[in-house]
Design a protein around this nucleic acid. Structure first.
Lengths: 228, 228
DNA sequence: TCAAAAGTGTTGGATATACACCCATGT
DNA sequence: ACATGGGTGTATATCCAACACTTTTGA
C-alpha cells in the first residue's frame, strides 16, 4: 500500500553559545534551503525518513550530517501533519528536540548554509518551522522545571552555579542560589565529585556530576531517551 | 520521493463503562484483526493515513468508522516507528488518545470484531499495541492531575461527586470529597448551573458544567485540541 | 582586610491533607 | 427520626520563596 505521503524527520537543536557581551545565549542551528519550496529560507535540519533506521536514529544521523553535532539528549517532540504545511505535497514530519553540550556546539560546522540563531530572534522560517520551534521552546522550558535535563548543556562535571546559570538562561529569570541548591540536592540528580574549582576570587565551589543511576526523566512506560 | 514506509494512524479510546458490580470501569474498544500479520489478535482501531485529511481528522474518522464513536477529547499521543514493530514491513504509526462520554460509549457498535476491554485486563495485542496502551494510560493519569479533562467522560452537566468518581476510577484511589471540591473550585474549570439533582436519599447536589472560556489544557503554542 | 561568590540557617506565607461537623433530602 | 451523601470549617503538616548570615578564597 502507498499513502502518497512523504515522511520526514527534523530536529530542533538547542545549545548555549557565547553571545554579544560574552553571555551565553540559547541558540538553534538552522540550514538554508537550496531548492524549492522556500528556497533561500532557513529551516530545521532534517530529511526523509529512512526505511531501516529508527526515527530517533534518523534524527541523530541527520543532525550529525548537517551540523557535525552529537546530542546529549534527544526526545521526540511531536508529529506535524497538517495537509497544507508544504506547498509541494503532503509531508508528515516527525520532529525531535535535542540538547548539545556547549563545548560540542563550539565545534559545530558553520558555513554559508548552516548558521546559529538566538532562539528568541529567529527569522521567518520555511514551512511551519516557526511554530515547531515555539513548541520545542515551550517543552524545553516546561520540562526543565520538573526533569533533570539541564546537565545535558554542560560537560561531565560542573558546579551548581553553572547548572543554575543554565536554568536562568533557559527560563529567562534569576534564581535564588540557596533555594536552587536545595532543589537540586533534594532531586538527587547530581553527586559531588569531591573536587573543587580553584582560581576564582572567591570560595572554591564543589564539582558535581550527573547521577545516571536514578531515573530523572519520567517518560512513563516508554524506554528512556539517550542521555549522556 | 518514496520512502518505502507506510504511515498509519491509530487511537487509544478511553471510556467509563458499567462493569461487574455495576461499577464503572475504565475501558478501551479494540478491533480483531482479520488478516496477517497478527490475524485474530485484538488491536487498536486505526488504518492508513489519508493524503488529504489532517492526522487528527483521520484518527476521528477511523474511530467513528470502526466503533461509531465521536470523541469529546482527542490528542496526539506519540509517533511509534521502531523498524521491527511490524513483521510485514516498515510501518510508522501516529497514535492519538481519545476520551468519549459514558452515554456515547453505550451506543458503541460492539460485535464479533469490536469489543470493549477493561484497561487493566488486556489480552496480548497485535504489534506493539500493549506498550502503546500502557503509555496512553500513563498519559491519561498524569494529565488528569494537572489538566481539566475529566469532564470529557461525562455529559454536558454533572455533579462534583460524578466528576470525583471519574478521577477516582482513573487514578485508582479514593479522594477526599471536601478537598476535591476545593481543588476543582480553585481551578475555575467548572461553573454551577444553578440547578440541582433531586431524587437521591440525601441533600440534592448542584449541577455544574464545564467552563470553556478558560484554557484548561495547556499545550503551549499548539492549537488546542477538540474539547466539547 | 576586602570583595565576591559558596554555602547554611531561619522565617513567614501559601498550599495540601485530614477530619470534624453541619445541611438537606427521601424514607 | 434517621440514614445518606452534599457541603463547610478548621487545625496541622508540608512545602516554598525570601533573605540574613557565615565560610573560603584571591587580590
Amino acid at each position: 500500500m502507498s499513502t502518497g505521503i512523504d515522511l520526514a524527520v527534523s530536529t530542533v537543536i538547542f545549545a548555549l553559545r557565547p553571545g554579544d557581551a560574552g553571555r551565553l545565549v540559547l541558540s538553534i542551528p538552522l540550514v538554508r534551503r537550496t531548492r524549492d519550496p522556500f528556497e533561500g529560507r532557513w529551516s530545521l535540519p532534517g530529511g526523509a525518513a529512512d526505511a531501516t533506521e529508527s526515527l530517533a536514529a534518523t534524527a541523530a544521523r541527520k543532525l550529525a550530517e548537517t551540523t557535525g553535532l552529537a546530542p546529549a539528549y534527544l526526545e521526540q517532540l511531536y508529529c506535524f501533519g497538517a495537509p497544507d504545511r508544504s506547498p509541494s505535497g503532503r509531508v508528515v514530519s516527525v520532529v525531535y528536540w535535542a540538547l548539545v553540550r556547549a563545548d560540542e556546539a563550539e565545534l559545530a560546522a558553520e558555513g554559508e548554509n548552516v548558521r546559529w540563531f538566538a532562539a528568541d530572534e529567529l527569522p521567518q522560517l520555511a514551512f511551519d518551522h516557526n511554530l515547531i520551534v515555539d513548541y520545542a521552546l515551550w517543552r524545553l522550558r516546561t520540562k526543565l522545571e520538573y526533569a533533570a535535563i539541564a546537565h545535558a548543556f554542560l560537560g561531565p562535571t560542573f558546579t551548581l552555579a553553572e547548572l543554575r546559570q543554565v536554568h536562568e538562561i533557559v527560563l529567562q529569570r534569576a534564581l535564588d542560589p540557596a533555594n536552587f541548591r536545595r532543589q537540586i540536592e533534594s532531586s538527587r540528580s547530581v553527586v559531588p565529585t569531591g573536587e573543587h574549582v580553584t582560581g576564582g576570587r572567591h570560595r572554591p565551589p564543589r564539582l558535581y556530576r550527573y547521577d545516571g543511576s536514578v531515573q530523572l526523566v519520567d517518560n512513563g512506560p516508554l524506554t528512556s531517551v539517550a542521555v549522556r
